[in-house]
Design a protein around this nucleic acid. Sequence first.
DNA 1: GGCCAGGCTAGCA
DNA 2: TGCTAGCATGGC
Length: 320
Amino acid sequence: MLLATIPLLPPYCFDRLVNRLATHPDPQASLIIAEKKMYRLFRLQGQPVLIELLFCGDIEDPFIQLYCEDTISEQQKEELFAIVRHMFSADVDLRDFYQQVTGDSHLALLTRYFRGLRFLLDSDLFSSMVRTIIGQQVNLAFASTMTERLLALAGEQAMTPDGKTLWAFPTPSAIARLEVGQLREMQFSQRKAEYIIDFARAVVNEQIDLESIKKMTDDEVVAYLTPLRGIGRWSVECLLMFGLGRPDLLPAADIGLRNGIQLVYNIPDKLNEKQIRDIGEAWQPWRSYVSLYLWEAVGAVKRKEEKFIDLITNKERLLP
DNA sequence: GGCCAGGCTAGCA
DNA sequence: TGCTAGCATGGC
């Protein structure tokens, strides 16, 4: 049953989302590329609900249709619409971002090539923080594997119509109930297991109020969360970007971002954090989005997208 | 088999 | 304040 049609501000490119998911897998989403369709298990008013998202229209007139086989309440619908609008940044006008970087030929190259690429944000702050901790210092593929194991251990399960298993992200109390040994068995390091369980317990104990951080400035959130063991500046920056959708974060400690800058600006020497922050000054107030496009540049090279590799290799010829 | 991953802590100067 | 060894594990 069609629940709603959610319009997005153009441009939005479904193919770019698919490419991004290839190098940045989302273990909570089941994608059927040929049908431009995604299944996902949302937690609505505390209850897992399987939703089908259909990507419609085109880059310049994009909208998402939401379908659900079950009957859900008006409250659940409202919550779902808000989450989907948030996850796809429905109101973010990329054209402002594209306009901002026209003076930088390297970035303009990316915004032309990746036109319509957006963040796929996390549905809530708790899952975003846990996924960020899992992602610390391991490659993306392994992080995704670990996340999937955590989902299977403590999340609720559902089956899509095409027979794939999906999970709703475990609640804070479900993770708070885990023991470190259970995560160790799933190849989590001792520290990573402790960080995740401690964080969940801090949320359950109301030592941390995730709702309150929505009203804080970026710097206030850093100061609020970094005292927790296992949560450093990079992790909070990722939470602000992928959890809250804040537009102007620059995770300077990020190895992928550093590689992206070196690739796109053709810098052979390794950059330190200060150099990265200095370079990023010019990208305000869109530093999150520049980061996304730089990450995606690295992703396109990893996927061996020849057209992009040609473009980036020959870019000197395109300079004025 | 060695180096790299979309880091963090603790210890030290 | 700023620097670094050590942590753990999969992927290539």
